[in-house]
């Protein structure tokens, strides 16, 4: 199944990846090959197979509802480029 140029551009946009116009044909080619490879699974008989959500045959362990984390804001914010009054500052995004 060949992807279109538009689909590749949309995927890049959703992933917030910037690719230049002359890179697009290369991605169309290689991503289409990946999809063709995976598409071999379409030939497998799966009617009676339950969809798998996780490769491990285990179930989710649950934690007790208790507060175990202390406030480490000062430490965590040493990693941020800009903070003010305890808030992380980011370029303005507004709906």
């Amino acid at each position: 199944m060949a992807l279109t140029r538009h689909e590749v551009e949309n995927i890049a946009h959703l992933a917030r990846l910037r690719i230049s116009a002359d890179e697009v044909p290369g991605y169309v080619e290689s991503l289409s090959r990946i999809i063709d490879f995976v598409a071999q699974l379409d030939d497998a008989e799966t009617d009676k197979v339950e969809p798998m959500a996780h490769p491990l045959h285990m179930t989710q362990p649950l934690r007790v509802d208790a507060v175990t984390e202390e406030n480490q804001r000062e430490l965590f914010q040493t990693n941020a480029s800009r903070t003010e009054r305890g808030l992380y500052l980011v370029p303005k995004v507004i709906e």
Binding site: E84, R85, L87, Y88, L89, V90, P91, K92, I94
Partner: peptide
């Protein structure tokens, strides 16, 4: 997200 009062930036 707080959009006011952060010199043109948003506070998170």
């Amino acid at each position: 997200s707080l959009h006011e009062d952060f010199h043109g930036l948003s506070g998170i």
